[in-house]
């Protein structure tokens, strides 16, 4: 189970509103390579992982992704706080405002609502860990695209933090994959055998 802590994983202190940037950043809330999908992917895959290390890393990274979901939501919320509808519309958020007002809703940058079709939980630890490695790289690339589109240091700073976390998670998943492969390759185990 989980316990909520009344603090963020990393400080978000944005002085200036920027609805245009919010429209892009929300993709890391509910888009195909966003934090919601990441968390659901890892927290779902952990049930079928074969080693202690792999169960733990999926559980703990899946949990950290929930903290990242909160960071992204906080950024979007602060970038759009109290902005009048006409300005939201001018900066590309007219459709979003119509459906969600100033609320935070999981969509991609192009407005597609969150879909579990963007994640997989295959029950095959090798397939799942390779997907996790790819997912971290796709999230890293997305944060880099966002940083290129952004010119506010208050926003770039937490985006850089989130990007760095993707790099660390990739490293940890790579180690978990090696540990699982080593176990699968031991004598008396078939490579495709899922349960030890």
């Amino acid at each position: 189970m989980w316990v909520y802590e009344k603090k963020l994983e990393y400080p978000i202190k944005i002085k200036n509103a920027n609805p245009r940037m919010a429209k892009y950043i929300i993709t890391q809330y509910g888009g195909p390579d966003g934090e919601l999908g990441a968390s659901l992917r890892y927290l779902s895959q952990r049930f079928s992982m074969p080693t202690e290390e792999a169960k733990a890393i999926l559980n703990d990274i899946g949990t950290e992704e929930l903290a990242h979901l909160e960071l992204v939501g906080s950024i979007v919320s602060q970038l759009t706080k109290n902005i009048p509808p006409k300005i939201l519309e001018e900066q590309g958020l007219g459709g979003y405002y119509t459906d969600h007002d100033h609320a935070i809703y999981p969509v991609s940058a192009s407005g597609v609502p969150f879909s579990a079709a963007s994640i997989q939980s295959k029950g095959d630890s090798i397939a799942d860990l390779y997907e996790d490695l790819a997912a971290e790289q796709k999230a890293r690339a997305t944060y880099e695209n966002l940083i290129r589109l952004c010119d506010d240091p208050d926003v770039i700073d937490p985006l850089r933090f989130l990007r760095e976390r993707e790099v660390v998670h990739f490293q940890r998943f790579g180690e978990a994959l090696m540990i699982v492969q080593e176990k699968l390759n031991k004598k008396n185990f078939f490579v495709n055998k899922k349960i030890f």
Partner: peptide
């Protein structure tokens, strides 16, 4: 105080993940 706590708690998260694969 909160900034100090956040930075220590972040170190805990980072070490936790590292230890998961280097127990």
């Amino acid at each position: 105080m909160l900034t100090e706590l956040m930075s220590i708690d972040f170190a805990i998260i980072e070490l936790n993940l590292y230890l998961d694969t280097h127990p």
